[in-house]
């Protein structure tokens, strides 16, 4: 499996998209943060003062990580996760890939490990760049603060927690791309669930309490609870279990489908 993993990393490294998506996440984070900084500079009133504090380095772990890793990195990593299998089908490279692999389990596992490693490097790198934004931004808005390893450490920890909260969506994208042999299916399915699960449950909640209870077993409810770190300890544990259970289930479906399927195309 090490050989497959090595090849997977080599291909990711050679692919411009790997760096391009990171740069897009950096630019989008910079644009949003820059907008806040400019708004703070322009509006010196009460609203501006509250915003001024929000854009300082001290608030980096809260505001900065949620914005950059929670949102932009989440979207970019869904694209990467879906593409890891979906593109193999669209480029017709899956057949030679399977023929070259000693086992299909090893092939899928190598891809998942490569995805995990890339995701960790992606969010840590993004978190560090955004830390730089906030450090500079603090000076720009007139509330300079000294550099703090502690704040940076909190931010990196928060970034990894945010990545963990994105795990069900990444594994869902990977699963959908494998099951439907389509990059687009993985991206659209995972992003669709990301955006519509909460509104759908809220609408269904109007129809009865049973749906309100059902929402607590959904992905978004538990991800938000975990990502927001606001729940009680026992609730937090349950949320972690639910997030892990969804992720494991999606991965299990991926293995089951891929191991049994004849590779007649892609």
């Amino acid at each position: 499996m090490f050989n497959l993993f090595s090849s997977e990393l080599f291909r990711m490294r050679k692919r411009a998209q790997s760096l391009m998506l990171f740069l897009i996440a950096v630019v989008l984070s910079g644009l949003v943060y820059g907008g806040f900084v400019i708004a703070t500079k322009i509006n010196p009133e009460a609203e501006g003062r509250r915003m001024r504090h929000a854009v300082t380095f001290e608030e980096y772990a809260e505001f900065g990580i949620v914005m950059s890793v929670g949102f932009f990195a989440g979207i970019m990593l869904i694209i990467v996760a879906a593409g890891m299998m979906g593109n193999e089908f669209s480029w017709n490279t899956l057949r030679p890939l399977v023929a070259r692999s000693r086992s299909r389990v090893g092939l899928l596992t190598a891809k998942l490990i490569a995805l995990g490693l890339y995701s960790i490097v992606f969010v840590i790198s993004l978190a560090l760049v955004v830390a730089g934004f906030f450090f500079i931004g603090s000076w720009v808005v007139g509330e300079p603060s000294g550099f703090s390893i502690s704040i940076l450490g909190d931010g990196l920890q928060s970034a990894l927690q945010m990545l963990f909260s994105n795990l069900p969506y990444l594994t869902m994208a990977f699963m959908l791309a494998t099951v439907f042999k389509s990059n687009a299916a993985g991206i659209a399915g995972a992003l669709g669930v990301t955006f519509i699960e909460t509104p759908v449950f809220q609408l269904l909640g109007l129809a009865g309490d049973v749906f309100k209870d059902a929402e607590k077993w959904g992905i978004a409810y538990n991800v938000n609870k975990f990502a927001g770190m606001t729940g009680e300890v026992d609730n937090m544990t349950r949320s972690v279990i639910v997030v892990v259970a969804y992720s494991v289930a999606f991965i299990a479906v991926t293995y089951a489908v891929f191991l049994r399927r004849d590779v007649t195309s892609g």
Binding site: N3, L4, S7, F10, R11, K14, L97, A99, R100
Partner: peptide, 30 residues
């Protein structure tokens, strides 16, 4: 299979974003 068989299946399929040489390196690493 990977130890004993080399195959072109219908049309050769490689990664379009890599060079020919890098494609061979990727296959060699596998």
């Amino acid at each position: 299979v990977p130890e004993n068989v080399g195959a072109i299946i219908e049309n050769p399929a490689f990664y379009p974003y890599m060079s020919g040489r890098d494609n061979l390196v990727a296959h060699a690493r596998m």
